[in-house]
């Protein structure tokens, strides 16, 4: 009963969530039909679809998507992993926390896009500079969330571990990490999300492949349709990454999502 009405509610919510996009689409189409703005600045929805299909068909889209995803993967692995390790050690050691914590928090205040000129000076305009830039984006959410998760492991669980003589690696993998996992996964989600934003930023700055490059090049040639197609693809991929991670999260944290199925308290 309750489950059914919950499902209905969810469906209703989903339908409601479609209203605004549909209205926007209608507004967009009428703006074009009524010739409210120049076709050079806004193309009709169907033309956009054509452009998308054309880009997909020509293989151009695939090449650029792969280039961007590649950079995200490398940058995320570097930044996410170092953020994870630093967050872990800071969470485990109050000394390291006092030592490195303030610097990391302070450096977070610098808008990361402002680092771009410096990164270019230091690392050039090649792939390395892009990896570094994306890694910086991936680093912060990972370090903070991991730290948060590890440093707030309940004293009650630490005591239990002591009672059962869990130490070293066993303590880390059986108590600390599982307890911190919800936070860590949140970190991964934000970290990957930012990596995806940063890759586009980096490619707009200067690249010869990637979705950001595709859009920047199209803008130079006033190909508004390709610019808009790029936006749609970037949004869709960002959305999909987040969706996939949410599915993984539900799988990994099944213990958190299972409370409603059993006996009541």
């Amino acid at each position: 009963m309750i489950k059914n009405s919950l499902k209905k509610l969810e469906l209703k919510d989903k339908l409601l969530a479609l209203i605004v996009p549909l209205l926007l689409l209608a507004a967009w189409q009428s703006a074009v039909s009524l010739e409210l703005c120049s076709p050079l600045l806004l193309i009709p929805p169907l033309t956009l679809l054509d452009t998308l299909l054309y880009l997909a068909d020509s293989g151009e889209l695939t090449i650029n998507i792969i280039a961007s995803l590649n950079r995200v993967l490398v940058g995320f692995l570097i930044g996410g992993l170092s953020g994870f390790l630093l967050g872990l050690f800071m969470g485990l050691s109050p000394f390291l926390d006092r030592f490195a914590g303030p610097l990391i928090k302070a450096s977070k205040q610098v808008p990361q896009f402002a680092l771009m000129p410096l990164i270019i000076l230091w690392f050039g305009v090649d792939e390395l500079a892009k990896y570094v830039f994306i890694a910086i984006g991936a680093f912060y959410p990972m370090v903070f969330n991991t730290y948060q998760g590890v440093s707030t492991v309940s004293k009650r669980y630490r005591e239990l571990a002591r009672v059962f003589d869990y130490r070293g690696a066993r303590f880390l993998t059986k108590v600390i990490l599982p307890s911190a996992m919800p936070s860590i996964i949140t970190g991964v989600r934000h970290s990957l999300g930012l990596s995806w934003m940063f890759v586009v930023g980096a490619e707009i700055f200067g690249a010869d492949t990637g979705l950001g490059y595709m859009m920047a090049a199209a803008r130079n040639m006033f190909q508004i349709d390709i610019v808009m197609a790029g936006l749609v693809v970037i949004g869709a991929i960002g959305f999909s990454i987040n969706f996939i991670l949410q599915v993984i999260e539900k799988r990994l944290l099944v213990w958190r999502f299972s409370s409603d199925q059993g006996a009541s308290k």
Partner: peptide, 20 residues
């Protein structure tokens, strides 16, 4: 110190929520 010759049941059950 703690040892396996002593068992404890805490007031809060203190089960680890991520384990079955």
């Amino acid at each position: 110190g703690p040892g396996t010759n002593r068992g404890i049941v805490f007031q809060d059950h203190r089960l680890l929520p991520w384990l079955t």
